[in-house]
Amino acid sequence: MSGIVEVNGLTKLFGDLVAVDHVEFSIAQGEIFGLLGPNGAGKTTTISMISGLLEPTGGDVLVDGHSVRTEPRAVKRKLGVVPQEVALYPTLTARENLQFWGRMYGLRGKELSSAVDEALELAGLADRARERIEKYSGGMKRRINIAAGILHHPKVLLMDEPTVGIDPQSRNHILEQVKGLRGSGMTVLYTSHYMEEVEFLCDRVAIVDHGKVIAMGTLEELRKLVGDADIVRIGVDETLAEESLVAVRAVPGVIQAERADSVLEALAADGGGALAGIISALNAAGEKVHSAEVVEPNLESVFLHLTGKSLRD
């Protein structure tokens, strides 16, 4: 059975740069599907093509049976989009913003009024609906940004990194808000480079890197890709030498090791067993160790296993 979203051979070139390279996936009705990948992996470009904002260089997307190439307006009627940036009008109030976006989705009269009320309740900002958006905190703006994308009850909701740059409290509120959409039967395509969010929300995940889907499946299926391997996460100086990294990779049991900022992540068959060897190797190389932990297999370890680099890169 075909999904409500069918992405077939989707490709986008910007000059010589291949931003999205023959991406294929299918999303079932009511599913929360994650696109996980580092910045610049092609997630936003993929969403832009699905939403009709960018014309694909190759391939096509079907949303509820309508082609984005030949029936873009029919596709747009099925979609709600929550962009990465807060795309609202700062001098309008929250209610005025939602009314405007509702009208752009074709809502009118009482239907619009009740949809706006409902969206404000969902965002937890009904009591501040008359305030201008410019007076809101970053997290509150994000919540209205999401509310503007869902108030017309779209069949498919595209969310492009909706939690970037906000405080933990607002982030939790948003994640709960998105999880709650599952009950309404809405299908969600959620992009993020935060592994924890995707693990918390998504039924299935596609991992993307350099414009390509490098792995796809349920969380369980993806974890199996790295077997029983663990991630050993070590706090180090950002000036960690390349020779020290080579020394860590040479520790018995270590499959891969990469540093991103002040965190060294090593994929090891037995994390607990490799931990002592890794710390010894770093000490021998004259590096300082600020913290150490062993993490159970997760999407981070899958990404590290598949690409040899961290999601934070």
């Binding site: 832009s48 939403s51 009709g52 904002l53 307006r73 747009k76 009627r77 979609l79 989009v81 962009p83 940036e85 807060v86 795309a87 609202l88 009008y89 976006w101 752009m104 989705y105 074709g106 503007a148």
Partner: peptide, 14 residues
């Protein structure tokens, strides 16, 4: 700049 134009163009607004 604030991407409200992009957002508008993802709605059924021509």
């Amino acid at each position: 700049r604030e991407q409200t134009m992009s957002r508008l163009l993802t709605t059924p607004t021509p």
